[in-house]
Amino acid sequence: MIETRALRKSYGSSLVLDEVSLTLPRGGITSIIGANGAGKSTLLSVISRLLTADSGAVSIDSQDIFRAAGPELARKLAVLRQDNHLNARLTVKELVSFGRYPHSKGRLTPACREAVNHAMTWLDLTALSDRFLDQLSGGQRQRAFVAMTLAQETDYILLDEPLNNLDMKNARAMMLTLRQAVQALQKTVVMVLHDINFASVHSDRIIAMKAGRVIHSGTPAQIITPAILRDVYDMEITVQEIDGHRFAFYYG
């Protein structure tokens, strides 16, 4: 369980997180939605200790993340940001193997190798394992990074806009992979999503943010409604149900 208590964070005079208190139970996919600048990525970064909050606390399974030892936390929680430019020139396999660093400090054990191979199979990267990252397409590279976080074998995976730069086919495949990981491996996935329809179809929970605050949270059926979406995005959005899923229309 991830808990945040009264998180505040500001850049200069602008407040990006305003007293965010939140409880995310174990299991399932939680999507964070909201307009640009609502504080979604900042929240994700604070939960994953990439940013420090000005005040407030974050705990994972009742353990304060800023007190926890680095490697210990890295075996419990993995985070992937949207822009992953590397200075290093690595192959897919080398990158995925880095996911084992928290466990083995660079000396791979047989269990490590198995985890690495497993993660690569899971993301359909086995054929690409000896390719250098700079020889891959954007979608393949994104998959390689997700494989690294899977190889980390953490209970929690936090992703910042994992569908960014992916085309329709790759975006769908990525969401399905994450769903499988949640179901088969009992992972807890928390991600920032821009596409509210992907969030609606694939999430178990949706958290809606606006101006640094969490203003709504609930199941897709509770959140994807015209009234709540108007509140979140300040625009008229119609919602229709197709095949048991709720879809938002805002193109016209």
Partner: peptide, 21 residues
């Protein structure tokens, strides 16, 4: 500490994720 240096070389976000302080 060569492996640790390699991880640091991945940049702050990835390195922190992998447990580097």
């Amino acid at each position: 500490n060569l492996a640790r240096l390699d991880v640091i070389g991945l940049g702050r976000p990835v390195a922190v994720n992998l447990g580097i302080r």
